[in-house]
Amino acid sequence: MNSRIRVGISEFHVARAPAVLVTYGLGSCLGIVLCDRENGVGGLAHTLLPSLRPGIREVRMSKFVDTAIRLMVEEMVLQGALRERIVAVIVGGANMFEPPGGVPANAIGTRNISAARETLQALDLPLRAEDVGGNYGRTVEFDLVSLQVAVRSVRTGDRIISI
């Protein structure tokens, strides 16, 4: 029996195989999976916002896409991951409430997705796959043994991403 670790809103968690990291009900929030396939060190973050607004003091840095990715990489390296081997998968960033006339370009979900792509690129971490956007919620389960990311949705069914 693998241990299941639940990642709450504004949290991230790093674990070693065997473990399953789960986060439930991502809407415009973005789930970020990072993984070093070779030695089974992986992390999952449930982020709300793209980045910290200047001038605001913030204690929970894992609330933000950019800082969560950086902190998670550091933590993974501490737990034995090799930085050069870390790859990423991002899930979520939907826009749940579609206003008539379409989703504005600066919708929070969309901004979360771009923030993740930019941060990953800046850190030179390959983005292996993404399941993002749309107008439906997602649950993410990341199994560190099979190296599979299961994306569940009540509206569109399930999808398995192999890292």
Binding site: I9, G25, L26, G27, M96, R155
Partner: peptide
Amino acid sequence: FDMAGAVVDC
């Protein structure tokens, strides 16, 4: 009309 977590987070 979706998962509570997703509906609420927006």
